[in-house]
Amino acid sequence: SKIILYGVIGIFIALILQSIAVMIESFFFGEVSPSENTQNIIQLILDTPAFIIATTIAGPIMEEFVFRRSILGIVGHYTNFWIGASVSSLLFALAHNDGHLLVYFFLGFFFSLLYRSTGRIWAPMI
């Protein structure tokens, strides 16, 4: 139940962090365009509703295993949590490749903190 609670609260915190990151990007870079990734995913879901399974279940599971469990785990093991979280968050941001590096970095770092605070990968997956 703790994992579910952290996951659900994490959804709202992630939305707030995303808004803050977009405001920072807007302040430094002017008008910020919508996320191409998000627009493409929405269009895929509208075209093929079954694709929602991949975007809401398979995608988050895969991302958390790759970026938090694997990259954060390996880099953090050989350095420390903060370096591991920074490296995995940077790679998470670069993997999304849509010009919103700060947004994805903030989210990746938050998911790393969520993973660390619960000790379970399921909370950031939620």
Rank of each mutant, 00 (worst) to 15 (best):
Y104G: 05
H77V: 03
I41T: 07
L107H: 04
I126Q: 06
G76T: 03
G99T: 11
H100C: 01
L5P: 00
S86Y: 03
A14E: 14
S1M: 10
A123R: 07
M62H: 06
G84P: 00
M62S: 12
Q18K: 14
P34D: 12
D98W: 09
G73A: 00
R69K: 15
I126F: 11
P34T: 11
F12T: 13
A123E: 09
I3F: 10
V87C: 03
I83C: 01
L72W: 02
I121V: 14
L5K: 12
L113Q: 10
G108I: 01
G73N: 02
I53D: 05
N80R: 03
L114N: 04
F111T: 00
M125K: 06
S89P: 04
I20K: 08
I9V: 15
E64W: 01
Y6T: 11
Y6M: 10
S89Y: 07
S88Q: 06
V103F: 02
I41L: 12
R69S: 05
A93Y: 10
G76Y: 02
G30W: 13
A58F: 10
E63V: 00
P124D: 08
I42Q: 11
R116F: 03
F67Y: 11
F29E: 09
V87M: 02
I24W: 14
S89K: 03
A123S: 15
G76W: 00
F29H: 12
G108V: 03
F106T: 08
A21E: 12
F51V: 11
I53M: 07
G30I: 07
Q43R: 09
S35F: 08
E25V: 12
S70F: 14
F29L: 13
M23F: 15
I83G: 00
G59Y: 06
A21S: 13
S117F: 13
E64N: 11
F111P: 02
A14I: 12
Q39S: 15
F105T: 03
V32Q: 07
H100L: 14
I126L: 12
Q39H: 09
S1L: 09
Y104V: 02
V103N: 08
E36K: 14
R68D: 02
F109P: 01
M23W: 15
I52C: 04
L107T: 06
I41V: 13
F81D: 00
I53T: 07
R68P: 05
F28Y: 15
L15D: 09
S89E: 08
R120A: 12
Q18N: 15
G108M: 02
S86N: 05
A123P: 10
Y78L: 05
A58D: 06
A123T: 09
L72M: 12
L15V: 13
A21I: 14
L114H: 03
S19R: 15
